[in-house]
Design a protein around this nucleic acid. Sequence first.
DNA 1: ACTTAAAATG
Length: 474
Amino acid sequence: MPCFELLLQHLHSHPQRLHQIHAVLITTGFHLASPPRALLPIRQGSSAVFFYNCLIRACLRHRDQPDTSLRLFAQMLAHGVRPNRYTFPSLLKAAAGDAASSPSSGRAIHAQAVRRGLLLDDFTNCSLVDFYARVGDLGSARKTFDELPQPDLASRNSMLHALCVHGDLAAAIALFESMVDGNVISWTSLINGYARNGEFHEAIDLFRRWIIQKDVPLRPNEAMLVSVLSACANLDHNRALFRGLEIHGFIVRNEAPLTGFVGTALIDMYSKHGHLDYCTDVFQATREKEVCTWNAMISALARNGRAASALQLFDAMTASRLRPNHVTFVAVLTACAMQKLVDQGLRWFESMSTEFGVVPLMEHYGCVVDLLGRAGFLKEAMEFIRRMPFEADASVWGALLGACKVHENVQLGDGVGKQLIELQPWPAGLYMVLRNIYAGAGRWDDAAGMKKALQNSGIKKPTGYSWIVSGDCV
DNA sequence: ACTTAAAATG
């Protein structure tokens, strides 16, 4: 196998070729074969570490090869190649993105890092904290972090993000406020933490606080803009629209580039507040449209009663080389449901997997049930649920229930309601739909029972919330 | 020559 020597030399002069080389190695199954035979020529020495580090890094781009990074790591140990400080950050990142990873694989890597004396390396520590948080073990992330004598800014930002993701906002705020050297990433993490935990006002306020910081050179930052705009989109209040408009103005004034993601966030924000004309403007002004930008615009049209235009835009999207994803098809099926285009909707549902390779998720089944149900094909919707490849969840039954309500089919609605009783916990809107069905049929006792059940469940009924309007996928 | 922290559409 002297070819590996050649490969290594080639890598020295053409590092950008790494991905091609890695792809070839994967497809030929080389580095997955038993260790000693396949990679014999690169046993020890500094170039071997470099080679492994590069390959492990390449795993980050090849998502389709699960646990390859861990195999590579095991293999390098088996070869007696010693991992160094460049090894662990990539390894941990790759392992965290691997669905099969668990805290225990992290602990094995962690132990190796300790053995290699890398606990003084900021990069490795930061990656460890991040890894534990990403595989859902906040306790270990916290413990690792707390044991660092002097965590650097990146490690603190990692911890901050971890706390936000796991919903421990109090601890996140405490950490944030203790940081005198917080940077844009720290601010973005907490703004996003507020937003994803439903504290939209706080997210917007923190963004404004950041703007007021005069001594910091304000370079508008894409992640921060996206986070705060999504807070404006999700806040169901007129004030939120004005805040969104302000931020849009801020973007224009500061000549922040209207990237695909910022454009997406703006379209979504205007769409949720019913300003379809602004959505169109932003969509046109966004130069490099991402798939999500198209999705946001298609949903905006569908949501604001322009289903035909939504379907036209979907055609335009497929006509360009972009690949629609599962979100695209939620939007398309929603548009079909609103226009009662049953045949067309069913055709798209069929072709999404056969033609576009997008496997339908629960949401898509919910959309089809909504599509059939709205058009009055209640029996067919029921039949469709029976033939689903997996158990329908509350959102799917809820779509059918909504249709029962619209078409005043108390008998089926009653049956569906009984089905739903099996599925806990109920979404808040469900109680009200059931109540209305019973009330519409004059079954006041049952209706009152539902209202009582809602109160007992302790769920707050969101104001202005309607199961029917929000559609198929609640 | 190889390493760390933030973001979105349903």
